[in-house]
Structures are given as C-alpha cells and as structure tokens.
Amino acid sequence: MAIRNMTVATRSLDADMTVDEFKEWLRRFDTDRDGRISREELRRAMRAIRARFTGWRSRQGISYADADGDGYIDDSEVDGLIEFAQKNLGLKIVAY
C-alpha cells in the first residue's frame, strides 16, 4: 500500500511509494527547475530522508544512474536512480 500525503521531511524509509510518487518527490529537489537532478540536489533529497554519508552516496547514485555521463539524472535515467535507491537506501518503490 502506498503512503500518501506525507511531507518530504517526514517520509519514512519503511513506507512504500509508487514510481510516480518517487518521481514527484524527487522533483521537489530540482531547485534550478531544469528537469534534471544534480549531485547536490540528490544529496539534499538524501538528507531529507535522513540517509547517512550523503556526499558519498549522492556521488554513487549519480555514477550508477547517469547513463550519458553528463553528471545529471534526467527523466530517461530515473529508473536507474530508482534501482539505486532500492538497493542502497532501503527505499521501497513499487509499480502501482
């Protein structure tokens, strides 16, 4: 069951979220509104879920998901970031 109406700061790592909810949540950290997630924006997202070692993990996440090597995660690369988040951050992202 997906948890709805939770704020970014209080989202639990134990709660399931759908792929669409994850994408919407991630978009909140796109501070420059360019449609891509930078390493710093990813780091802020990780801090919001109280992940540890966010500098290292954000670097790893970008490296893992950035298929074209430009240093950003765009819409076509979000699936790789979802896979990284499930494996390395303990997030439960389901396809509803």
Rank of each mutant, 00 (worst) to 15 (best):
I3P: 00
I3D: 00
R4C: 05
R4F: 10
N5I: 09
M6E: 11
M6Y: 09
A9E: 11
A9V: 06
A9L: 10
S12C: 07
S12P: 03
L13I: 05
D14V: 00
D14E: 04
A15R: 12
D16W: 06
M17N: 00
T18C: 01
V19R: 15
D20C: 02
E21W: 01
F22L: 09
F22E: 04
K23G: 02
E24Y: 04
L26E: 02
F29H: 11
F29W: 04
D30T: 13
D30L: 05
D34G: 09
G35Q: 04
G35C: 09
I37W: 08
R39E: 13
E40M: 14
E41R: 03
E41K: 06
L42F: 15
M46Q: 12
R47D: 15
I49Q: 10
I49W: 12
I49N: 03
I49R: 08
R50D: 01
A51C: 10
F53I: 00
F53V: 00
T54G: 00
G55M: 00
W56Y: 07
Q60T: 03
G61N: 02
I62R: 12
I62C: 10
S63H: 10
A65F: 05
A65L: 06
A65E: 11
D66K: 14
A67Q: 11
A67I: 09
A67S: 11
D70F: 05
Y72H: 15
Y72A: 04
I73H: 13
D74S: 12
D74M: 01
D79E: 15
G80L: 11
G80T: 12
L81Q: 03
I82G: 07
E83T: 14
E83C: 12
E83I: 06
E83F: 09
F84E: 03
N88K: 13
L89Q: 05
L89E: 09
G90D: 02
K92H: 14
K92Y: 01
K92T: 13
I93M: 02
V94L: 15
A95F: 03
A95D: 15
